[in-house]
Amino acid sequence: MLAEHVERADDPKAALAAIRVVGADAFAPYLLAEAVFHPDDAAAVSQSFAVFPPAVSTPDPPPSGPAEPWIVAWRDWATAALLARLTGTQGDGTLAPRPEGAPTDHTDWQRWSVRMSQLSPLALPALDGPVHAAARAAPLALARGATRAVLRRDFPTATRIVRWLALLHAEGVRLPLDPVPLVEHLRLHGGGPRLALDAAIARRLLGLEAP
C-alpha cells in the first residue's frame, strides 16, 4: 500500500514527505485492519527517513526547549518503532531515537490537550510509553480539550484529541464522556482527509468498524 503510493506518485519526493507527515498512522491499516505489510512498504518508510532524515539528537522537552522539534521527534519515534515492530527488527536500533520527557502537567488543560492532539499519531494500540501514561492519567483533561475544540469548531484538533479518548476507551479506562457520539459528530462534519483518517482510526479503536 505505501510502496504503491510512492510508486504511482507524480512527485516521489512529495509522496515520501507525505509518509513522514502521516507518520505512525501510515501503519494503521496493518494494525487495525487486515492489510498485509509488504517488505516494499517497509522500504518506502525507510526511504522517507533517508530522504527526510530526522534530527540526530533528541531535542530537550519543553519548557527547556521549543515544543515543535520535540513533537516531531516523538512522532518520528512512533513511526520508527512501529516499522521495527512490523519488520521484526526491534532491538536493532530504530530510525529515530525516543525523546525524553512527556506532557505530564495537565493543570493548563487547554494547552496540554492541544499538545496531546499534536501527539495523536502515538494513539495506536501497538505503542506505549510516557506519552500514553500521561493520557491515561488525565482522561478528564482530554475530555475537556475535545469539548473545547468542538466548541471552537476546530474539528481537526477535536478529532485528534478524540483519538486518545478512543484509545483509553479500548483499554478500558473510565471516561467522563462517551466518545462514540463525538466521533460520529466529527466524522459527519468532515474537514478533509486527515480528519477522515483520524476519525476512521478512532472508530476502529471504539469497535464501530469491523476489521
Partner: peptide, 16 residues
C-alpha cells in the same frame, strides 16, 4: 515545510 506540517497546531481563531 515538513516540520511545520508535522506539528499540526490548533486553529488560531475560534469559530465558536
Amino acid at each position: 515545510a515538513l516540520g511545520t506540517a508535522m506539528v499540526e497546531p490548533e486553529a488560531v481563531l475560534s469559530d465558536a
